[in-house]
Design a protein around this nucleic acid. Structure first.
Lengths: 249, 249
DNA sequence: CGCTTCTGTGTATGTCATACGCTGTTCTGT
DNA sequence: ACAGAACAGCGTATGACATACACAGAAGCG
């Protein structure tokens, strides 16, 4: 991990716009932001897999190698793209109600992934340190400002929710992808999966699973929103219990 | 997605050993399992990034292209490697205590990832359908057999836990990687992260986050186990509440 | 015993990221 | 002004890699 003069890792420095570009040589014809936006357009159109340096360069109207004057490597570009794509969280509007605040926060996050599913395909590279990632984190923490929880607990909870939302979104996008690959509806895809498992699952070997399948769990697709709310409610119920304990002690 | 004669997707058929290999030509000198094991050795030694067809072939004692007689593509090999690596879950030993059962299940899963962190770097390709994935799922469902929950709810909970454990493991491995890259201890790495955020986080812009940082949340590394238990407890508390409601209604 | 089918293999191709060096541009110090 | 330094954008070269293709020999079938 290379550090710049202030001790900030290079890729993070880029995300915060801390790159020093001394005014010596010719005027830059491109902007970092322009390149990042070009990358986002490519990813939005054809997925992260289509984000090659040459494709992005073409989209930005430059040659492949020109990008490397702005970006250290492809990974850095991807990181910048993600940071730009997630943007700032919506303002908190639920005052003192931590639960409503976290629910709104989670939905906003989910919506973001729904709009820009390619973000989910970018491998995570480390702990959150880009401006918009921190903004989301701040917003999540702020929702719990009046709960009396220890800061450590708040942080853990935000991370827990972050993961949850992200993973739920990954699953949803995977389903979407499968659906499109099969050219069928969501219900059909789920039914196909159900049929597959019925074929593979031997009740003697997987009794509990077989019972679930027989109960028809896979015969129809759940409303993905309901699925999302279910897990979210379990987590927030647990958080509520903790807050209650904290208040009681 | 290609289907074989029985309607099973090709990659899944491979994982279940359903590949038909007619006894016509010369005796195969390799085995699918041998190749998969070779792949696992490479991944364990140098990470998923080092798993190239030629490297695996060398490890298996064959030429690069020989692998393609056993595996449709690299992705399929990775899928098979993961399935083989996760193996079967440990037997349930907590009888009727759903919570103890799920805790043990989660720890076993976490331990698995701890031993074979490379598994976490293999991109997930779809809903669980390989034998060992289903075995873990079955085991998780079995832990809740006597809770009276709807099968649908059980499934959601298992998926929720699966995600949770996986993500927690990803974070842990990321930390480990960062620590090794910096050549320092866990505490030092966390401190470096804390210092970084202190530098970047403007209290005016990120008040809640600044408060957490000032509280010293990042000054020392949590015991990763405690962090794990914290989130797990939140989730299981939520599940417990649901089970209570179910019993009451 | 010849035909078919399959194995292992070598080679070829196409895609990528990225290092390197060239050309022309713009600013700095005189 | 002007010389020279530092830098922008570009073309080409390199080195991984996955994988298509075609070949030579082996093993079973008739």
């Amino acid at each position: 991990m290379e550090l710049d003069s202030a001790g900030v890792p290079a890729n993070i420095a880029a995300a915060w716009g801390l790159r020093e570009r001394p005014g010596k040589g010719p005027k830059p014809g491109l902007t970092l932001d322009g390149i990042v936006q070009a990358g986002i357009r490519v990813a939005a159109a054809d997925g992260v897999g289509a984000v090659t340096m040459s494709r992005v360069a073409a989209e930005a109207g430059a040659s492949t190698m020109a990008l490397y004057r702005y970006v250290r490597a492809k990974d850095e570009l991807l990181e910048l793209m993600v940071d730009a794509a997630i943007g700032d969280p919506p303002p908190l509007t639920h005052g003192g109600d931590w639960r409503a605040g976290l629910v709104a926060w989670s939905w906003a996050c989910r919506e973001l992934y729904r709009r820009q599913p390619w973000v989910l395909r970018v491998p995570v590279s480390g702990p959150p340190a880009t401006p918009h990632q921190l903004a989301w984190m701040d917003s999540g923490l702020a929702a719990m400002a009046q709960t009396g929880l220890r800061e450590e607990a708040k942080l853990s909870i935000v991370l827990l929710l972050t993961m949850y939302v992200r993973n739920e979104a990954v699953v949803a996008v995977d389903m979407q992808t499968a659906v499109q690959a099969l050219g069928s509806s969501l219900d059909e895809a789920m039914a196909a999966y159900g049929t597959l498992l019925r074929m593979l699952v031997d009740p003697a070997r997987f009794p509990a699973l077989a019972r679930a399948i027989e109960a028809g769990v896979l015969d129809r697709a759940d409303d993905p929103d309901e699925e999302f709310v279910f897990g979210l409610d379990r987590i927030l119920d647990g958080v509520g219990l903790l807050i209650g304990q904290q208040a009681g002690s």
